[in-house]
Amino acid sequence: MSEDDILVTEGLTKSFGDFQAVSDVSIRVKRGAIHALIGPNGAGKTTCFNMLTKFIAPTAGTIRFNGRDITRLRPADVARLGLVRSFQISAVFPHLTALENVRIALQRSRGDSFDFWRSKTALDPLNGRALELLDSVGLTSFAYSRAGEISYGRKRALEIATTLAIEPELMLLDEPMAGMGHEDIDRIAALILRVSANRTILMVEHNLQVVANLSHRITVLTRGRVLAEGDYRTVSENHAVREAYMGAGHG
């Protein structure tokens, strides 16, 4: 494993009974890069993400993060090491304000128990950092709005803020643009580019324009296997990729 590699999988495989969802997937994610994992529906992308973040155990293969074998670690242990996932469906507390959501994430990052039963003032020391994080994702003016009352795109920005609160070294983003209109897509794409300045990002994304604009490297999966890898031009000109993912008639 090179020092430039932050995450390496070798022979990653997952079977569910007789069905092999992922087969012999080997990926190298370079430190500081935005790396996209793409492929048609059923290609095994989400299963790979679930194995990387330890929500499911691989049937075979290894996962190394910063040179350490994390294949058998628990999800919480992997998150503490700095590998943190943001989910496809926005995961925020809708009845709490944006500020309160980020404060809860900050509690987790410092290892405290969640202080739901304590006075709100007990968490006031976290306000400064929480407001900084909200500012970093463009949500300063929504700090005291309930999360359930802000737009879908801003909920996704809030989710990224709560992920940043855990101080990840590698962020895994699961379809960050899912369900968004053009304006929100542009806002979140710009946000991802901004937060990638001092960390690595691995993302599953169906929007090929976003992938083209953001990604340094792309891994294409089909039927649970790696079909191609490279920059956007390399994979988009690959005939097998065009057949399997984009459709042979696409330019």
Rank of each mutant, 00 (worst) to 15 (best):
D5L: 01
L7Q: 03
L7V: 09
L7H: 04
V8D: 13
V8S: 14
T9M: 07
E10V: 11
G11A: 01
A21V: 02
H35P: 03
I38V: 00
K45S: 05
T46Y: 02
T46F: 05
T47L: 02
C48F: 08
N50E: 06
L52C: 08
K54E: 15
F55D: 10
A57L: 14
T59K: 03
G61Q: 15
I63H: 14
D69Q: 08
D69L: 08
R72N: 12
L73N: 03
P75S: 06
A76D: 14
V78A: 10
A79K: 09
V84E: 00
F87R: 05
S90R: 02
A91W: 00
P94A: 01
A98S: 14
N101R: 05
N101E: 05
R103F: 05
G111M: 09
G111W: 07
S113E: 06
F114L: 12
W117Q: 06
S119G: 15
L123S: 12
P125C: 15
L126S: 05
N127D: 15
G128H: 11
G128P: 09
G128I: 07
A130G: 04
L134M: 00
D135M: 06
V137M: 05
V137W: 07
T140M: 09
S141V: 06
S141F: 09
A143I: 14
A143G: 14
A147G: 12
S151M: 11
Y152Q: 06
K155Q: 15
L158F: 05
T162S: 02
T163K: 01
L172E: 13
L172Y: 11
L172S: 12
L173A: 08
L173Q: 10
E175A: 07
P176Q: 13
M177K: 02
M177F: 09
M177W: 07
M177L: 08
A178H: 00
G179T: 04
E183Y: 14
R187P: 13
R187F: 11
I188Y: 02
I188N: 08
I192L: 09
R194P: 01
R194H: 04
V195I: 12
T200M: 10
L202M: 13
E205T: 06
Q209K: 12
Q209V: 09
R217F: 06
R217S: 01
I218C: 01
V220E: 02
T222S: 00
R223C: 03
V226G: 01
E229I: 09
G230N: 03
Y232V: 14
R233Y: 06
R233D: 08
E237Y: 08
E237G: 07
V241A: 04
G247V: 04
G247M: 04
A248L: 13
A248P: 10
G249K: 15
H250G: 08
G251E: 13
